[in-house]
Simulated scan of single mutants.
Amino acid sequence: MDFTLSAEQAQIRDMVTEFVDEEVVPRAREIDHDDEFPADLVDEMADLGLMGMPFPEEYGGAGLDYHSYAIGLEQISRGSGGLGTVVAAHISLAGNMVYEFGDERQKEKYLTPLAAGDDIGAFALSEAGAGSDVPAMETTAERTTATSRSDGDETTAEREGDEYVINGGKLWISNGSVADTVTLFAKTDPDAGNKGISSFIVRPEEDDGFIVEGTEEKLGDKGCPTAELRFDDMRIPADRRLGEEGEGFVHALKTLNGGRITIAARGVGIARAALDEALEYGQQREQFDQPIAEFQSIKHKLADMDTKLQAAKMLMHRAADKKIRGENFVKEAAQAKLYASEISREVANEGIQIHGGYGYTKDFPAERFYRDAKLNEIYEGTSEVLRNTIGDQLLD
């Protein structure tokens, strides 16, 4: 197995690293404090091709493989966990839904501006009573008859079933208040369980009845707005449905599976930031006439932090490799996301411990890394759900 980065992968790593060091890291504390969507940084990432990394160039993307995408997202998350979520939700969830399940017209019309970074994407699946239990969702999409009147014609022409009327609400939607395109899941057959769920493309600025109820005040992940959405008799054209009716549940599972690789990348990036900060502090802070990093207890902490980080990176790239090869990667993606999520919190926790009292203050970024890391264990599949997924794959 060759672990050497290709020339293109190394180039992507170096380019994103430079951008993050020069533009994101100096702003990270501000983003965390103000909790405002950093539109200017997103525009800069769009100019660099980072908002469409894995999508084909024909649709405005950069045409990168999933290793390069994971490397890029790792570096972005190293600078800001919230910015990492902005990109992951935009590409892995919203954009990937259109790319994988949209027809050619939908890809050209909706994926191209997403991949170019001209539009921002969001993925609306979770509800107050439907998190891990997706079929418990209550949002409905009823196909109905629309009417139109031709210019100069007094008669009304009816077109059977060319609209959906959507009612309900969604919760915990990353990018939900700033998105131009939202991939939305709703029940088209409420009595059919997971086979009654369909997926749609929604355009908030165009679709009357799309309401942003507000955004959450969160522990971490600042800079990425997490919105509560409501749909009141929101009418959308039937040609905005992705695939056939009843395929939405499968769309969601496949999309989340691929997204878990990028949440692993977010975890790796945060763990890297926490380790780098702990290393620097440990070599500068002196106690008993020597840097604290020279004490065996601190040295062992640093060794364990790096070992966990390297193992998480290997799991992340293993899952990416299987995806690129077109092989089943459900177990590998779940393992990568599970392990990277948990070690990012563990590494960040040890980073605080190494900083001592300073680590518990906002004078140092160690506490921010911990707050950002915790989210990895919750969204896009909780650690508990992922363990079930891995177990099911082992027993299958």
Rank of each mutant, 00 (worst) to 15 (best):
I211Y: 07
A312W: 06
E160W: 13
Y59I: 03
E8R: 15
I12W: 07
G129V: 06
E217W: 15
Y358K: 11
A320V: 10
V385N: 11
G282E: 12
G82K: 03
K222M: 13
I261N: 02
A179I: 08
N96L: 05
A264I: 06
I324Y: 00
S6K: 11
E332T: 02
E294R: 12
R78S: 00
I261T: 01
E277V: 09
G357P: 00
A271F: 07
G196P: 03
E216N: 07
N376Q: 10
I292F: 08
I343A: 11
H33D: 13
T147E: 15
A70Q: 06
K107S: 01
T139G: 09
K187N: 10
G359A: 10
A146D: 04
A192N: 03
I76M: 06
D276M: 12
V134L: 15
A311L: 12
A115R: 05
Q284T: 15
R159C: 07
I31Q: 02
M1L: 15
L256C: 01
N328W: 03
P54A: 05
C224P: 02
G267L: 10
F231Y: 07
E58F: 12
T183R: 06
D32E: 14
K299I: 02
D392Q: 08
E380I: 12
A271L: 04
A39Y: 14
G248N: 07
E216R: 03
I390R: 10
A94G: 09
D180T: 03
N96P: 01
A46T: 09
G82D: 01
I298K: 08
I173N: 12
E286K: 11
E294I: 09
V25W: 09
A320D: 00
D34H: 14
T139H: 09
D233T: 11
N167G: 06
A157K: 14
D276H: 13
A348N: 03
T215P: 06
V182L: 00
G52S: 10
D47A: 08
I354C: 07
Y360F: 11
G282R: 01
D47N: 06
L275D: 08
A252K: 08
F3I: 14
M316D: 01
V165P: 07
I236L: 08
D208W: 06
I352T: 05
G243L: 07
L229Q: 00
G248S: 11
M314F: 02
A265P: 03
D372R: 01
Y110Q: 11
V42P: 00
G131E: 00
K222L: 13
R159M: 14
Y164Q: 02
D189N: 15
H251E: 05
S199D: 10
N376T: 05
A366K: 10
Q353M: 11
E74M: 00
N175F: 05
V20C: 08
F101K: 01
E332K: 09
L242W: 04
L5V: 09
M234R: 11
A265F: 04
G95P: 07
Y99G: 10
E44W: 05
S199R: 03
V202G: 04
A264T: 01
K308E: 13
A274C: 06
K170H: 15
R240H: 03
E245M: 14
G243M: 04
S6H: 13
P225N: 08
S80P: 05
E280C: 14
M137E: 11
V182E: 05
D21E: 15
V385K: 13
F200T: 13
